[in-house]
Each structure stands twice: as structure tokens, then as C-alpha cells.
Amino acid sequence: MTKDNYHHGTLKQDLIDKGLQLLNKEGYEDFSLRKVAALCGVSHSAPYKHFKNKDELISTITLNVINSFKDSLNEIVDKYSDPKTQIIEMGKQYIKFMVKNPDYLKFMFLSDFNKTIIVKENEFINAEDTCFDIFKESAINYFKFINANQTNYTDNILIMWSLVHGMALLIANKNIQLSENYLKLIDKTLNENLKF
């Protein structure tokens, strides 16, 4: 049996998973299909059965990461219609996803591949079709639910996102060690602080 046969049809996904780890570790310039093949334990030519070059693999990795996170957040949108419950559950899902997928967190927010969201004149620019956009829309629905007279929620969305994202970073990177279940703590924190 050759090295390439070892994967039994999982090579493409293995290349994506190991490629993500390599991108996070070495960045774009030092990334190569040859290095990913070595990490997967296959011949240097094996990745070319699935990807024509490193950019195509990186593009696939990017879509895989973003779509996985989007799907995770959209599950909450589909499951909960009450605005307060939805934003609390989304905050918990956001953090849970990042804690379970630290390579995704690093790729989306701590690498050269992140998508910068610009805040200008109380508007989020460059947020369309991002994971943040799903979070933002859920937050807007909540703020409309509690205060229909307010028209701009940018500052409050930033505060809420900072709370959720900051907790995700701290827990995923093991910067803090909690004595209780982190989802229980997040649920309590969000319930007590959603009083904008």
C-alpha cells in the first residue's frame, strides 16, 4: 500500500485541516502544498489531485472556516425567535465554537487572512456576508425589541461583540481558567448585562 492510499478518501479534508494549521503557524509566504503533503504523510504530488496550487487550497480553507462558523451562528437564528434568547444563545454559541475550534479563531481573527470591519459614521463597513454580520443582525433585532425609538445601535453592538469576542479569546487561548462551566458563566453575564 502506498502512502497516498492510507487516507481512504479523506485526503482532501486532511489537506484542508492540516493546511489550516500550517497557515496559522507559518503564514502565506511559507505555506506550500509540499509542506501540507508532508504533514498529511502523503507524497508531494498527492495534493494536486484535489488542488491545482496553494492559492486554491487556501481559498478552500477560508471558505471552510467561514462557512462552518456562519452555519453555527445561523443554527441559533433558526432555533430561537425571541430576540433576547437569540442573542444570548448566539453569544454562547460564538464562544463555544471558538473554544472548540481554536485554529479557526486564530485564522479568522489573528492572522493575515482576517477581514477588517471598519466603523465609520456609526456604520459597519465591510461587514456584509461575514460571520460578524449574523451576530450584528441578531443584536439589532434585540435592541429594536427593547428600544424601538433608537435608530443607531453601533456603539452597543461593539460593546456586546467585544464582551463575547473577548471572552472567546480569553477562554480559547487559556488566558483564564474558570472554576465553573464557561457557558453557564456566559449565560449569566449576558443575562445580567443586556440592559442597554
Rank of each mutant, 00 (worst) to 15 (best):
I58T: 10
L23V: 11
E75M: 11
K115Q: 11
G41I: 10
V77L: 06
I61R: 10
M108W: 01
N64R: 15
E56Q: 13
M90R: 13
E56V: 11
S43W: 07
E121P: 01
A46F: 01
S45Q: 08
K120S: 13
I58R: 05
L33S: 10
S72F: 02
I16V: 15
Y94G: 02
I16C: 05
Q86I: 04
K49A: 09
L105P: 03
E89M: 12
K96N: 11
Y48C: 06
S68R: 11
N114S: 08
K120V: 04
V65W: 03
I117W: 12
Y80S: 08
L110R: 10
E26A: 14
V119A: 11
E29V: 08
E29R: 12
S72H: 04
K35H: 07
I16S: 06
F69K: 15
D17S: 12
F113S: 06
T116H: 08
D78K: 02
F97R: 02
Q13R: 14
Y104I: 01
N114I: 00
K106N: 12
V77I: 15
V77E: 06
P47G: 12
I117S: 06
Y104R: 00
L33D: 02
L105H: 07
K49V: 04
F113T: 00
K120I: 04
D82N: 15
D14P: 00
S111T: 13
E121K: 10
D112T: 07
D103A: 11
S43T: 15
N67K: 05
D82V: 07
S81G: 00
T60L: 03
K84T: 03
D30M: 08
L22W: 04
G9Q: 12
Y28T: 04
D82S: 13
L20K: 08
F51C: 02
V119N: 15
Q21G: 08
N101G: 03
Y80G: 01
K12T: 00
V65E: 05
I87H: 13
A37I: 04
Q21A: 07
F113L: 10
K106D: 15
I87E: 06
T10G: 07
Y48Q: 03
A38Q: 14
A37F: 03
Q93D: 02
V99I: 13
A38C: 04
K115W: 05
F113E: 04
S72W: 02
N74M: 14
D14W: 01
I95L: 02
L39Q: 11
M90S: 07
L11V: 09
N101T: 08
M90Y: 05
K18G: 03
F109W: 06
K25C: 00
G9W: 11
I95H: 01
K18P: 00
N53M: 06
V65N: 07
D103N: 14
K70G: 01
Q21S: 14
Q86P: 00
M108A: 09
N74T: 14
K84L: 01
K12P: 01
D17P: 00
V42W: 10
I58H: 05
S43Q: 09
M98C: 15
I95D: 01
I87N: 06
E29M: 07
